[in-house]
Design a protein around this nucleic acid. Structure first.
Lengths: 169, 169
DNA sequence: CGGGATTACTATAACCTTCAACTATTCACT
DNA sequence: AGTGAATAGTTGAAGGTTATAGTAATCCCG
């Protein structure tokens, strides 16, 4: 990320082997880090305050709302959220304790578990979406031109694909 | 973020009040979410595996390495990391238990605490930086054109500024 | 059919972050 | 000086995430 400031030159050997980041790149990288962190923070806080949902829980509800029968297998849900299966299990357990989703055995595959959205869960999503969209607009979309925002999406999509692929050069 | 799919039209009332996201915007938003999440994940994992450091700990070392005397007051450190003071306290405590930093009373202000990098901490940063930079390049920088990357930084900087300001329109 | 490999998911514990409450010090003002 | 407000930082508990190991069902293929 950033070259350790040193008067001893001890870091220069490393710099010789690794293509370091230019000053401009370094600034861009830090801006990226801080921006994504702060955005995540504020969206999470808004959603928690206004709707009593974490970002992760909201995402679960969105995915389920779009699935046929408002149901998704745990593994599919986890993959679609880019979460570990373990994380999905915990999140869904907490949500089911609140009555937002239900877990039912997967017909046809005894190993599988289907996560189904309850009416209550759907109602909460419907009630929460406007405030959340407003928040996303206010903190992200409205800060950029339409073109910038779409470019942002395209860039991060390339990154996501590389990460998914394991990111060999 | 995304309009709940509904056949009942129950969400349309909300949509009437809130400027929803267009299909293209929605795609961009999800790409952004997934990309930042996966990038964060893979960078964290790489750093942890190669160097035994979390991203947060690495950032602490970077900030300290750039500070005069390789020391920073806790509150300055926390602000510069965009972390809560509490989080900074915990992180620094763990790092000091490993001998990477030291906490010393702040001369001139009895309330303050200075966090000072040890030689060991500096050595670990120097040893870790090359692998981390490689990781950032591989997963982010090299996936984009130079122009795209700088634009990315500029966009997230606008977002960060808005978040810092409290984001009134 | 049957036994090993694979897949699907869960449980436990360790770790990190957040939150709220708390102590100590300094500042502002009379 | 003296008191109330603000600042600096820590603490401990609660909650979420990750890692690891475990159980159960299915698949594969001889």
């Amino acid at each position: 990320m950033s070259e350790p400031q040193t008067t001893s030159g001890v870091a220069d050997d490393a710099a010789a082997e690794v293509p370091w980041l230019s000053t401009a790149e370094q600034r861009a990288w830090r801006q990226f880090l801080e921006g994504t962190m702060r955005l995540n923070d504020v969206l999470h806080r808004d959603l928690e305050r206004d709707c009593g949902l974490s970002l992760a829980e909201y995402e679960v509800l969105v995915r389920l709302s779009e699935a046929p029968g408002r149901a998704l297998r745990m593994s599919v849900l986890a993959a679609s959220l880019a979460h570990s299966r373990s994380r999905a299990t915990h999140t869904v357990r907490r949500m089911s304790e609140r009555g937002l989703v239900q877990r039912v055995a997967c017909p046809g595959d005894g190993r599988g578990v289907n996560c189904v959205m309850t009416e209550e869960g759907f109602a909460l999503l419907v009630a929460s979406a406007p405030a959340h969209v407003r928040s996303v607009r206010r903190h992200l979309v409205d800060r950029l031109t339409a073109q910038e925002f779409l470019t942002l999406g395209a860039c991060l999509d390339k990154v996501a694909q590389a990460c998914r692929a394991g990111a060999e050069p």
